[in-house]
Design a protein around this nucleic acid. Structure first.
Lengths: 293, 293
DNA sequence: CCCAGATTGTTTACCTCGTATAGCTGAGGG
DNA sequence: CCCTCAGCTATACGAGGTAAACAATCTGGG
């Protein structure tokens, strides 16, 4: 385990006891846009790797690494990262903390597993193709939305995905697996990109996803935190806003949640840029919008 | 410029190790590019907020919040985030841990302070203007490089900047202060952007910076960790790479560090996009939102 | 100069956490 | 029926955050 790695474990909400019921009231923006196709609630198919936990106390039936890691994901989703301790996770599985160590060498390793299992949900996503079927743009579109779906499904896990040090420097978050890197590079190089261009695209694409999704998740995180943290953790008070008239004036716009549209437009812009990179001067023609069946 | 006294690329990998394989060899990438103007080593002016203590030997002389938070930043820079504990920080200041609590209510609050003080280095940067002097593009350019300088100066702190929940949902990392949000919005709205466009630009700009810099810092973090973590934390072994021929083939390209150029080009591209957004003189204006099912 | 009160740092102590180690328990094989 | 051993529990230790009581130092009014 890396001794001096960045650890966002302690960033986030203090452990709250009550379960978070619903969205905060009074917000101008409704973060749960019912038209956002990447939001978990608006999605039909149950491609959830972490299914079936049943009764918490009677979770018996044989522990194994996958069950433990899945439970950890579920726990983080519900209680937040800082609340995940070995003892609590053990309890959630109806077992003492030390029982986990038979399958998981350490908490750090457990978190690695959490990241891995969450990112691997991409493989189970029927709308994401491991190899392009309708051109590289469609491929990148689907991949991007797949990652976004993951981020929105596990907002409390995504910061981990973003900040955990990757196995190799060039395995960049959020596409943290060699298989996807290979898939990405293969998709582009077989569609007219040179090696250099493919690598460049890989980098641009990674940072685009990372920045956008981290911000989107953070935004939702704040909304969530505001609920189970009745302490009122240093929210911006009205008085402090006095010296910032523009912020005040534009607050309705700033608060507005245009995540889907924004993501979509930025993504298209990025793809356009990559397209130009590939074929400089030529007019780009074929473009396939993402069909979400 | 004695930029690279040590080469972190292969510092932790003795030859024939077998663990790190051929990845680290070659030294294609030099993360300490002596031509990168944003790297701390290549910068002259001492705009370091944490530099202002005359007698470092005797850490005494009155504790106060700023001194504590500054020490925390220095400590994280040197030892990494997980190593920062109240006791160790106290010791670094020549004081018991509990003494800190007279000035800092909690560790969480201390970390908030760390983020704040680091981000506030922007104010002390003579190359960043709080208000545009040579047009909005120059303003954004300078601001971006200012933030990048901060990220590179405090790579271990930046993940904190990225992931700590902001005070309000619309105070987005990495520009985490109301003053800069105001500055940004003001700069754009006074240069031909409508309110909507300014807010949109603010969002795009934030995620661009966040994604790029987080990735860049992570990359360096990996290299750094490889040094002080002789544990050899699960680097990608050569054998695992077998099923990924393209990754192997493109490894030299993937390993290459083109941070400056890459940042610069992506930034220019973003500015170009914002420019088009502002003056829809050229084609390509509104794109329809994703089809609602 | 003396001393009450405020400042500022220290000591002690409690609780939680990660995790090492040893103990228990029940199923299957001899 | 006992041995073995996988799978879990019990116990324990050190580190960490932090509350509360305590001590040392400084302050200004008599």
């Amino acid at each position: 385990m890396p001794a001096s790695s960045t650890d966002p474990t302690d960033a986030g909400a203090p452990p709250g006891d009550g379960l978070t019921g619903q969205i905060a009231a009074g917000g101008v923006a409704d973060p749960d846009d019912p038209t956002d196709p990447d939001l978990p609630d608006n999605r039909a198919g149950g491609t959830d790797v972490l299914a079936g936990q049943g009764a918490p106390a009677s979770g018996r039936g044989g522990l194994d690494r996958h069950r433990i890691v899945s439970a950890a994901v579920a726990y983080i989703d519900e209680q937040g990262l800082p609340a995940l301790t070995m003892r609590k996770l053990g309890a959630a599985l109806g077992v003492e903390a030390m029982a986990l160590y038979r399958y998981v060498p350490s908490r750090e390793d457990l978190l690695d597993g959490v990241v891995e299992i969450v990112v691997d949900e991409l493989f189970a996503d029927p709308d994401v193709y491991i190899a392009p079927r309708h051109g590289w743009e469609d491929y990148l579109q689907r991949l991007a939305h797949g990652v976004r779906r993951i981020a929105l499904a596990h907002p409390a896990v995504f910061p981990l995905v973003a900040t955990r040090p990757p196995a190799a420097p060039w395995v960049r978050p959020p596409l943290r697996s060699l298989r996807w890197v290979e898939s990405f590079l293969s998709a582009l190089t077989t569609h007219g990109f040179t090696h250099e261009q493919a690598v460049l695209a890989y980098r641009a694409y990674s940072s685009f996803l990372l920045g956008h999704l981290l911000l989107e998740v953070a935004q939702r995180g704040v909304a969530i935190n505001a609920i189970d943290d009745p302490d009122g953790a240093a929210d911006v008070s009205a008085g402090e806003l006095a010296p910032y008239p523009l912020v005040v004036e534009l607050e309705p716009l700033l608060t507005q949640d245009e995540s889907v549209t924004e993501f979509e437009e930025s993504l298209e812009s990025l793809l356009a840029r990559l397209g130009e990179l590939q074929a400089p001067g030529s007019n780009r023609s074929r473009r396939r919008p993402p069909s979400t069946p």
